[in-house]
Design a protein around this nucleic acid. Structure first.
Lengths: 156, 156
DNA sequence: GTACATGCAAAAAATTTGCAGAGAT
DNA sequence: ATCTCTGCAAATTTTTTGCATGTAC
């Protein structure tokens, strides 16, 4: 049962990776296999350690490069806003964020209401208490949209 | 007008910082002043460069230490999930996240519905398009709640 | 006076890059 | 044959830490 889920996932990853023009090297294949079994949200280093068990000669740099390629290919996504330098929040008001997917900049957003319902059947969440819901809206900011509309796309 | 907002903010930061037992050194005061004027989400390095203009002799390590102290004091918050190592998302289903505020672990959450309304009057967001809303629920996971209930609180 | 804070420099952690050789298509 | 990918090692970037001295309370 669990096996077939991982296998279906692997097939998907494999196909999406191939259709993005990425070559199927042994390193990439093992990485995809590890990813297809991942239940959580692994870091590059955790992936490295997993992949290494099957391919002891792989280098950490290769894992980093592959993970980036897969992000570019849309196969993986960095969890939220992680990485790079930590940004700090000073605004004491109750608010949320809008993140531009092209330039990565963040703006504060005020919401008038939030409503959500957890699907408990599908969510094996060991939450004892939930005390806050932060929303991040993702999209294109006006500047990047204009740039994308006319000239070549300018990212990051 | 803008001045008084910053000043009110500074007073708040100053008071919260003091009531957390933090001493008011020149370095801390300038940092709080910079923070009270911050309109965006600065990194430690950006804060360092700002503070330096008023206190050229301050060291980057002091800024880092102070920012951490202020986070512990509840004056600042790290933006979302940033920092440390980047975690990657493999799950292709449409889902959201639950983050334990004690241990920092992340679980996938499935929502049946999401509803929100942007308060456009208060939000100067230059969003050309919004194509996704990611929700992060914050709280205590069962494990950390149990640990907090009995023994001493175990964090991070 | 004492405990906390600071500066400096070195260390650690996370990530990126240059380069020469190997391999996929 | 070509263009991508890899391993290795060195470089960068971000953050943390040890230690002697300074200073807010």
């Amino acid at each position: 049962m669990k096996r077939s889920v991982a296998e279906r996932r692997f097939a998907t990853l494999h196909e999406r990776s191939a259709s993005s023009g990425l070559r199927m090297t042994p390193q990439r294949e093992v990485l995809l296999r590890v990813l297809s079994r991942a239940a959580d949200h692994p870091t590059a280093d955790q992936l490295y350690r997993q992949v290494r068990r099957h391919l002891p000669s792989i280098s950490l740099a290769t894992v980093y490069r592959n993970v980036q390629d897969l992000v570019r290919a849309g196969v993986l996504a960095p969890l939220e806003h992680a990485g790079a330098a930590v940004q700090y929040e000073v605004n004491p008001d109750d608010h949320h964020h809008f993140v531009c997917r092209a330039c990565g900049r963040v703006w504060d957003v005020y919401l008038r209401s939030i409503d959500y319902a957890v699907d408990r059947r599908k969510s094996p969440v060991p939450a004892a208490t939930i005390d806050r819901a932060d929303i991040q809206l993702h999209g294109l900011c006006a500047g990047c949209a204009a740039r994308a509309g006319s000239g070549s796309a300018g990212a990051r």
